Simulated assay, not measured.
Amino acid sequence: MTLFGKILIGLILALSLVFASLSAAVYSAQFNYRKELETQKDQYATLETRLKDREEELLKQIGDIEAELAKVTDERDLQTQTATQLAQQNQLLQGELATTNTALNVQTADTEIAQAEAEDRRVEVLAGRQRTADLSEKFVASEGEIAALTDEAFSQSVTITQMAQTNGRLLDEVASLRAQLREIGIAPNSAFTGTDPAPDVSGKITAVDERGSAGTKVAISVGSDDGLREGDELEVVRMTGGGKYIGKIRLVEVGYDSAIGNLISKNPTATVKEGDDVKTRL
């Protein structure tokens, strides 16, 4: 055998070994591929099952989330409505607070005024107490004077009683004298024709009557208790406005404390008026 043949045989042997190795590798790769494919199929089935389970779980979670979202939405709407109501209530409360503050300010002002008035009353009460104390002291001091005045009043009462008794006795005597005058034919109220002048008497004209047929008549505030008699003449004057002579009257009726007279002379420039003065002597 030649060298070329040996080389060729060696080459063929080497190629055979190479092909054998390649065949073994291909077989091994094909076997591993199938095994890996089965493994991958098993893993795929497992993953698909897990995916379905996960999908169902996710769908359930989505349903729960949607339910929770609906619940949260309802709660949000309720809270929004509550917030709106609270805002309205807040506005009402703010209005009431403003009204309350205004009323409080008014009450505070009224309280301050009341306190000032109370202080004024307290001062007045203290002043009243002081005045009461002063009056009490004066009352105590005047008790002696009151006792003295009481004694004096008692003495005057006794004197008045005695004077009343004397006056009654004098009236009885006057009545007796008038009876005696009637017995001798003399009227008790007749004018005295003697020479005794009228006493010094002053009075006022209380009424004026100009409608009588005998002329002007006047009523005066003095009478027989002042010593006047029928026929006495009195001057009429007006003391106000610098003084003015009015005229003269003659008494025609004389009562105890009043009299009536006729106007017998008159100042042409004057008119008799109620309130004018009458005098027996100017």
Rank of each mutant, 00 (worst) to 15 (best):
K60Y: 05
N32H: 06
L282E: 11
L135V: 10
G255I: 00
K52L: 06
G223W: 01
L17H: 01
N262V: 14
K6T: 11
E38V: 10
V125H: 04
S265F: 04
P199Y: 05
A118V: 06
V18F: 08
G128I: 10
R169F: 08
G275H: 09
R122Q: 07
M239A: 13
G241H: 08
A67C: 03
E210G: 05
T206Y: 02
L149S: 07
F19H: 05
E274L: 05
Q107E: 08
K248P: 00
D64F: 09
L104W: 07
E38Q: 11
V140F: 02
A109V: 06
G255V: 00
K248E: 04
D225P: 00
N262L: 15
A147C: 01
V106D: 12
V272D: 10
A133K: 11
G95P: 02
A207N: 13
Q91W: 00
A114T: 07
G227C: 05
T206S: 11
D226E: 07
G275T: 10
G231V: 05
L171G: 09
T269L: 06
A175G: 14
R54N: 09
K35G: 04
T166I: 12
L22P: 01
Y44L: 11
V222D: 01
A147F: 01
L171Q: 12
Q40W: 04
V106P: 00
Y27T: 14
I12Q: 08
Y245K: 13
D226C: 01
A147Y: 04
D232G: 00
K244G: 02
A198W: 01
V254N: 09
K279D: 05
A83G: 12
N101W: 01
I12P: 01
A24G: 09
E68R: 15
E210V: 13
D172V: 06
S23T: 08
V272S: 11
Q130Y: 04
S16A: 08
V140L: 06
D226S: 12
A147W: 02
R169Y: 11
G63L: 12
L126Y: 14
V254K: 05
L251T: 11
G231C: 07
R211G: 07
K217S: 15
A83T: 15
V123N: 13
V254D: 03
I246A: 10
E152K: 09
Q88K: 13
R129D: 12
L78R: 13
D209S: 13
I160V: 13
F31K: 08
D110M: 02
G95K: 12
G10R: 03
D134I: 10
L59I: 11
L181S: 04
A133T: 14
F4H: 12
A187G: 10
L13D: 02
T269C: 00
D276W: 10
L13Y: 00
V252R: 14
D64N: 15
R131I: 07
L8K: 06
R50W: 07
G243A: 00
A191D: 13
G243R: 01
Q43V: 12
V201M: 02
A118M: 03
V174H: 03
R76A: 15
F192Y: 15
D172Y: 05
N267Q: 10
G242Y: 02
I160S: 09
V72N: 13
E137I: 11
G255S: 00
I184T: 11
Y44S: 05
L8Y: 03
G203D: 04
T280C: 10
R129P: 01
G10F: 07
I62S: 14
L126H: 06
L97I: 15
I146H: 05
T150C: 00
A164I: 11
I220C: 03
T99Q: 13
